[in-house]
């Protein structure tokens, strides 16, 4: 099965990104494909390379990048939402790309299931 995931909240502030990550990992473990994760609203903050959590905490940004690299997941950050919040190419973490809202719609069209995590 082909999954699309939408994340609408930023890291650490809300559990949404954590839940989405564990969902994605479980789906992959079961042999499914996570085709794309789309970051919208404050979710775009999951893609900031300036993120520096304390040493003993999970690194939400790097964790997404690693999962994506290992499993060929397309991590897409909404351009309109990103620019509003100061996320640009210059502070975009590795493994993420900035693109338009059409990528979210495309996830809905191409994936068998689209699961949203937010507030």
């Amino acid at each position: 099965m082909k999954f699309g995931i939408v994340i609408n909240e930023g890291p650490y502030q809300h559990q949404a990104s954590d839940s989405a990550y564990l969902f994605a990992k479980a789906a992959i473990a079961k042999g499914h494909e996570v085709w794309r994760v789309f970051f919208y609203h404050d979710g775009v903050n999951n893609a900031s390379k300036l993120t520096e959590p304390p040493q003993d905490d999970r690194h939400i940004v790097n964790r997404w990048a690693k999962l994506a690299e290992e499993n060929k997941i397309d991590l897409v950050v909404c351009v309109a939402a990103a620019l509003r919040r100061g996320i640009k190419e210059e502070n975009l973490a590795q493994g993420f790309r900035i693109s338009g809202l059409g990528q979210l719609v495309e996830s809905g069209i191409k994936c068998d299931r689209l699961i949203t995590f937010g507030d």
């Binding site: 919208y40 609203h41 309109a80 939402a81 809202l101 979210l104 719609v105 069209i109």
Partner: peptide, 19 residues
């Protein structure tokens, strides 16, 4: 909150995809 506005932006794009 901004959800209502950003939701509307998705709606307009989705319509452009003839859904």
């Amino acid at each position: 909150t901004i959800y209502a506005l950003e939701s509307l932006e998705v709606v307009l794009i989705t319509a452009a995809f003839d859904q």
